[in-house]
Amino acid sequence: MLQLSCLCGQVRIALKQRPDFVNECNCTLCSKSGAHWSYFHPSDVEIEGETSQYSRQDKDDPAASVHFCPDCGSTTHFTLTESAISRFGNVQSGVNMLLADESDLAGVELRYPDGRAWFGETDFGYVREPRIIGQKDTQP
């Protein structure tokens, strides 16, 4: 089990498994919320502590609510909105892996999706090659 917490420790997250990969997306939501997401089935994520949440106002039907600690402001996780759950089912939640100790993620692939150029119709493109967390990064 992997244990994560916000900066002040009020919000704690327990994951039943390590992530398969971590996304360092460059879209405005990810970059401005300060999150590197990994995705899990909601039954594999345990959240303790109160959070505040935000759904994008620039989208007619946002698919996710981003949660953060009301005390320290750390982005902790996202959940699907009711609208997204009605379309797809409650199949995914995201956890901000910047809350984890990097040593706990050693060996996990870090990907760099180009969210700014993605409009939802196709697969993500990437802005650079992935790297393995814990290995020396040879790219500038």
Rank of each mutant, 00 (worst) to 15 (best):
L29Q: 03
D60T: 04
D114G: 09
A117V: 02
G49L: 03
M1V: 14
P70S: 05
A84E: 11
F40T: 07
R116A: 05
I132K: 14
L29Y: 00
T138P: 08
K32Q: 13
V45G: 06
Q53E: 08
P70W: 01
L105F: 02
E102L: 13
R128G: 09
F21D: 08
R87F: 08
V91Q: 10
D58N: 06
R56P: 00
T138I: 10
S103I: 07
A64G: 05
R131M: 11
W37A: 09
T79D: 09
G120W: 07
N26Q: 02
E48F: 11
G134S: 08
V22A: 04
H77R: 10
P130G: 10
R12S: 06
E50A: 15
V95D: 00
L98N: 13
K16D: 15
H36S: 13
N90Q: 13
S86L: 14
L15T: 06
M97F: 04
S5L: 02
G49A: 07
G134P: 10
Q135T: 15
S52I: 00
S38I: 12
C25A: 05
F124I: 07
S55N: 03
V45N: 02
G73I: 07
V45H: 04
C6F: 06
P140E: 09
D123G: 12
A14V: 13
Y39E: 04
T28V: 09
L15S: 08
M1C: 12
D114K: 07
A117L: 06
V66R: 00
H36Y: 14
D114L: 12
L110A: 05
S55M: 06
K16E: 15
A63P: 01
T51C: 12
D101Y: 07
R12V: 03
L105A: 03
T28H: 07
F88A: 14
Q92P: 00
T28D: 09
F119W: 06
A63R: 09
G134Q: 15
C6W: 05
S103L: 12
T75N: 02
T75F: 01
I132E: 11
Q17K: 15
F21H: 12
F68T: 00
V91C: 10
N26A: 01
L110N: 01
D20V: 12
V91Y: 12
F40R: 13
P130T: 12
E109D: 14
T79G: 04
E50S: 14
P113V: 11
N90R: 13
K59R: 08
G94H: 03
L29D: 03
T76L: 06
D61T: 15
S38A: 15
A14Q: 15
C30F: 02
T51W: 02
L99N: 09
T81P: 05
G49K: 07
A84N: 09
A100W: 07
T81S: 08
W37K: 04
Y112R: 09
L99T: 05
S43N: 13
W118S: 03
